[in-house]
Simulated scan of single mutants.
Amino acid sequence: MAKDKDLGSISGLPDELGIDDDLARTQQVLTVSVDTRRYGKPVTLVEGFEGDANVKELASTLKRKLACGGTVEDGVIELQGNHANRVPDILREQGYTVDA
């Protein structure tokens, strides 16, 4: 029988199933917006991460799928260019809830 320390805090199921990570993603509501930076360049912002979400890993996935540059600052993903149409779909594929 599994010990209590091996059970997830959210689901109560064994940690090796990875259920808690999936549930934590679906409970977060992310917002996607476009801001204009220096010289009128658009930047897509992804905000709303809570807890210990792996923001850098998600930023890397978004940059790879969108073929763009970007960074993570203060828990906010900044992507170069206007990707407001494509980012919500990619986030949903990754298991996140996106505010429409």
Score class of each variant (00 low, 15 high):
1 M>N: 08
1 M>E: 13
1 M>W: 10
1 M>T: 10
2 A>S: 11
3 K>Y: 11
3 K>D: 10
4 D>H: 13
5 K>E: 10
6 D>L: 15
7 L>I: 12
7 L>M: 14
8 G>E: 04
11 S>A: 03
11 S>P: 00
12 G>R: 06
13 L>Q: 05
16 E>G: 06
16 E>H: 14
16 E>S: 11
19 I>K: 01
20 D>H: 03
20 D>T: 03
21 D>K: 14
21 D>T: 10
22 D>I: 09
22 D>L: 13
24 A>I: 03
26 T>S: 07
26 T>M: 03
27 Q>D: 13
28 Q>T: 06
30 L>W: 00
30 L>M: 05
33 S>P: 07
34 V>C: 14
34 V>L: 13
34 V>W: 08
35 D>M: 10
35 D>T: 14
36 T>S: 08
37 R>I: 11
37 R>D: 14
40 G>S: 11
40 G>H: 08
41 K>G: 02
41 K>E: 11
41 K>Q: 12
42 P>T: 07
43 V>P: 01
45 L>E: 07
47 E>Q: 15
48 G>R: 00
50 E>D: 09
50 E>Y: 03
51 G>P: 06
52 D>F: 05
52 D>H: 09
55 V>S: 02
55 V>L: 04
56 K>I: 08
56 K>F: 10
58 L>I: 15
59 A>I: 07
59 A>G: 10
60 S>R: 12
60 S>H: 10
60 S>Y: 07
62 L>S: 05
62 L>Q: 03
63 K>T: 08
64 R>Y: 09
65 K>R: 15
67 A>P: 08
68 C>K: 12
69 G>Y: 15
69 G>R: 15
70 G>M: 04
71 T>F: 08
71 T>I: 09
71 T>H: 12
73 E>H: 09
75 G>N: 11
76 V>F: 05
77 I>T: 09
77 I>C: 10
78 E>C: 13
79 L>D: 04
79 L>F: 10
79 L>Y: 08
82 N>P: 06
82 N>I: 12
82 N>T: 09
83 H>V: 08
84 A>G: 07
84 A>C: 07
84 A>E: 15
85 N>D: 14
85 N>L: 06
86 R>C: 03
87 V>G: 01
90 I>G: 01
90 I>Q: 02
90 I>M: 04
90 I>L: 15
91 L>A: 01
91 L>M: 03
92 R>Y: 05
92 R>F: 01
93 E>N: 11
94 Q>S: 10
95 G>K: 02
95 G>Q: 04
96 Y>Q: 01
96 Y>S: 00
96 Y>C: 01
96 Y>L: 02
96 Y>K: 01
97 T>D: 02
97 T>P: 00
97 T>R: 04
98 V>F: 01
